[in-house]
Nucleic acid binder design. Structure first.
Lengths: 155, 155
DNA sequence: ATGATACCTGAGTATTTTAGTCAAGTTTTC
DNA sequence: GAAAACTTGACTAAAATACTCAGGTATCAT
């Protein structure tokens, strides 16, 4: 699994805009330069973020982008969905031959696995806000992942 | 984020082989047919799984594939790494201009985020065994994800 | 023995997704 | 009214993914 460059860039842009929250709008040109992202690509990404409602813009000279809400009200899942379309693609429906029916074979051992993974990722991103991000808090938040009580072999 | 077809198929194949654990080896041809995966692609995936040491093979007629160890000793992270190369690609190093140095901008708010996500995914896959998978247990294992104590806005 | 079965291995191709570019606008401010 | 800066869509290049192909080798059944 990997992070797309759109998402990496978009997160950086959001972090930069969040850090300047309250100050004058940040122009795309300045953001692109400071984050070392191609300008046209930056524009494209900013447009997606704007469409998703997480930032707003001001045109004209001295225009630029600002947060649409305070940082603690913007959860990262919004950003992920804005840029990647979803947090976790539905595997089950992708391999279904008929709509609304799971065609995973092997008695469909897999769909519970993928559903749980999707839930985990969704939880991860929607539990973290932009404010957490710029404070570096995500590193300290603990995850308790509970498998059945048993030693974990063959790591 | 998405699951590659290799991984989806590989997991299915492992589940099918695990369900036949103790029985006669399953041939690639039979596996491919039952799981509805192209034969040549199946061979390729089985080869990767064998290289990773999670299955072993027997040649000749009445040959095929069997688990290399009992199902409860095979954790899913092995399978993921065998097929995708890693569980989570290191974002930080990907955008580093110089080796061993993190070039994330914005005071590098991002690397803690991605590191935590990587840890979460690694934990997820290495905490589940093939036995859990074929029993459907992954669906019941609980995840406790602990963000800072605060209501979760803007979901 | 020998032929059929089935694994082994690497190379090659096609499709899709991602990443990034280009160009011609519109709006706002100074 | 000119410059700054956002808006929008289309287009292209590169990379990853998803297969396919071909020729080989080992083993088993008879």
């Amino acid at each position: 699994m990997r992070i797309t460059s759109s998402l990496e860039y978009g997160m950086r842009l959001m972090a930069a805009i969040a850090k300047a929250d309250g100050d004058a709008p940040l122009s795309a040109e300045k953001l692109a330069r400071e984050e070392n992202i191609p300008l046209d690509y930056t524009n494209q990404i900013l447009w997606k973020l704007k469409s998703a409602g997480v930032i707003s813009s001001r045109r004209g000279s001295s225009g630029g982008y600002v947060l649409a809400r305070p940082p603690h009200e913007i959860t990262l899942n919004r950003i992920v969905i804005a840029l990647d379309g979803s947090i976790f693609e539905d595997v089950c429906s992708k391999y279904a031959d008929a709509p609304r029916e799971c065609h995973h074979q092997s008695g469909c051992s897999l769909s519970p696995l993928w559903r749980r993974l999707g839930a985990l990722l969704t939880e991860f991103f929607s539990s973290t806000t932009l404010e957490d991000l710029i404070r570096g808090e995500p590193a300290t938040a603990r995850v308790e992942f509970m498998p059945p009580g048993r030693p974990l072999p063959m790591r």
